[in-house]
Amino acid sequence: MGTSLQPVNTLVPGQNLGAYVQAVNTFPVLSAEEEQKLAEELYYGENLEAARQLVMAHLRFVVHIAKSYSGYGLAESDLIQEGNVGLMKAVKRFNPEKGVRLVSFAVHWIKAEMHEFILRNWRIVKVATTKAQRKLFFNLRGRKKRLAWLTNDEASAVAKDLNVDVKHVRQMEGRLAAMDASFDAGADEDDDVAYLAPANYLEDKRYDPSVMLENADWAANNVSGLESALEKLDDRSRDILHQRWLSEDKATLHDLAAVYGVSAERIRQLEKNAMKKVRVYMEA
């Protein structure tokens, strides 16, 4: 029943996928009785060796599932590693009293990890974020057997089967058909192609003459309005605002309290009232 140890590099799919597949296929398939015994040892006794044997015996199953996602353009070795994480999570949570085989229980966890990996890496921009979108993504991706767009009847059938609106099917189909594009030109692109990069067609509005004039006008009006508003304040209020906000060496409330012989709280109240008046004067 025990599984023999393999060289470390053969049990890492990223090193040599062929050797890894060959290695995991050497682990014997557990009978129902063997699996039940190991599961009980893990569940009741926290036997880590039992957990290791359960994982090793099901690695070939992860490889099998990973092959079904080969059409997403992602490395099979990466999918296998993500699936192995799901397998280990399933083994940890497997309850032998439920009366089901581990493989039936683990398939959900294995696919969940692979799905998450695919959604994170299939496109730079995520194509699905909600649970409904994820379901639609994988179902629609599996149903599209040809490159052509779905006909209206096909889109309606998919929408009916998945209990979603047809417009959502069309939106996801568009996301599936979209391709990532580089914002900047690649370092090895020649001048005949590099100019087509989107970065070269962005409008820099900072140096638009009309925008620059508008900003300068706005700043001048604000300065003029502020000066006019300050002139309408009494000397003390004007000095407090100047010392607190307009001076390079700004004074604290306690500094001004010492100057005017009042409490810091009184200076704060005077400052607040002066700010309200300036606001009113500038909006008038």
Rank of each mutant, 00 (worst) to 15 (best):
E49K: 14
L17E: 09
R60G: 14
K37T: 15
L17V: 08
N25S: 08
S68G: 03
I65K: 04
K37R: 15
A51Q: 08
K67G: 03
V63L: 00
V29R: 15
N84P: 03
K67H: 08
Q36D: 13
L74V: 06
R60W: 12
L30Q: 04
E34D: 12
E40K: 15
E33F: 06
S68Q: 14
Q22I: 00
L79H: 11
E41C: 09
A39Q: 15
N16K: 01
N25L: 09
A66P: 01
Y20I: 02
Q53P: 00
V29D: 02
Q53G: 06
G71S: 14
Q53S: 10
S31V: 08
E46Y: 13
A39S: 15
A51P: 00
E34T: 08
A50I: 09
Q81V: 11
H58T: 05
L38M: 03
A39P: 14
S31C: 05
Y69L: 02
I80G: 01
F61V: 07
A50G: 08
V85F: 13
V21I: 11
A51K: 08
L30C: 04
E76D: 02
S68E: 07
F61Q: 07
Y20M: 01
P28Y: 04
V24H: 01
I80E: 06
L79Y: 07
H64K: 14
A66L: 03
E46T: 11
Q53N: 14
A75L: 14
E33C: 00
E40S: 12
Y44I: 09
L30S: 06
